[in-house]
Simulated assay, not measured.
Amino acid sequence: MAEPVPHVKSALRTVELLDFFAQYPGLHSLTDLQGKLGYPKSSLHALLRTLVDLGWIETDVTGTLYRIGMRALLVGATYIDGDPVVQLAHDALDWLAEVTGETVHLARLDHFDIVYLATRASRHYLRPFSRVGRRLPASTTSLGKAILASRDDDEVRAILPAELPSLTAHTIVDAEELLVDLHRVRKQGYAVDREENTEGLRCFGVALHISDPPRDAISCSVPIPRLTPEREKEIASCLLEARERIERSAMRQRRAY
């Protein structure tokens, strides 16, 4: 077995710093960053100045508060533009948004989080809306639960953090309760987020079986006032059809190569 490659400290700190800004948007002082990350203040200041000069981090007008910079957006957009699953799912997401009239998402599992890769806004939603790039705990979303349900209980337990995060009063925060919910997902064929990350919104999700194990999923979000048992069945049916379209496209692409 090959020995792990040792990390380069400066590179590791750079990535950890950018991850921090991605997780905690907004402006942060040097003192705040030093307290959160634990780096020596002089080293942290030099790293921040380097990243500011390169455009990865920006400062406020005083030069004393820091936030993520434009360069991160450009690299993130390149990731989305070049991602093969985003391209595969494009037409199916358009179709799903059209036939349901609701907001639909494509997202990917990253450790225990879901990262949104594409969004189509509901025709009922009048303001600009996008979750692209947003990160949420997998256990709080139908997207995440659909992907987790494709793994067995032991694999899920290995992924779970010590404490499940709580975003609303409806969020599942007990690991065993989550496993029961995942069994329900496997039985009915799709996952349901019952106002677990946004009050007043129920979301339905299915995993895409285009990798082994699946790491991508699509979902449809519906405000509670517009939801009936019949509507839930309709949404689930449309999600399964959209998934089939994406998986067929993936199969055709593999055959082409």
Results as ranks from 00 to 15, higher is better:
180 V>Y: 14
63 G>E: 06
79 Y>F: 13
242 A>F: 00
245 R>H: 07
236 A>C: 01
90 H>V: 08
153 D>P: 01
100 T>K: 07
125 Y>I: 06
46 A>W: 07
130 S>C: 08
51 L>D: 12
64 T>I: 05
5 V>S: 07
224 I>K: 09
153 D>Y: 04
153 D>G: 06
66 Y>S: 07
61 V>M: 09
168 T>M: 01
37 L>T: 02
235 I>Q: 00
250 A>P: 03
37 L>M: 06
200 G>H: 05
231 R>V: 04
190 Y>H: 10
151 R>G: 01
79 Y>I: 11
197 N>Q: 07
221 S>C: 06
66 Y>W: 08
64 T>P: 02
148 L>T: 01
33 L>W: 10
13 R>F: 09
68 I>V: 08
39 Y>E: 06
112 F>M: 13
253 Q>N: 12
213 P>L: 11
212 D>A: 15
77 A>I: 06
96 L>T: 01
221 S>N: 03
51 L>Y: 09
130 S>V: 05
187 K>M: 11
243 R>P: 04
12 L>Y: 03
65 L>T: 04
85 V>S: 11
154 D>Q: 13
84 P>N: 02
170 H>M: 15
243 R>A: 00
201 L>K: 11
20 F>Y: 15
46 A>G: 02
142 S>N: 04
198 T>G: 09
145 K>L: 04
221 S>V: 00
16 E>R: 14
233 K>C: 06
131 R>H: 12
41 K>L: 08
145 K>T: 01
55 G>M: 02
52 V>Y: 02
58 E>N: 07
213 P>G: 05
102 E>D: 06
197 N>E: 11
44 L>F: 10
79 Y>G: 09
251 M>N: 09
27 L>Y: 14
85 V>E: 13
89 A>D: 09
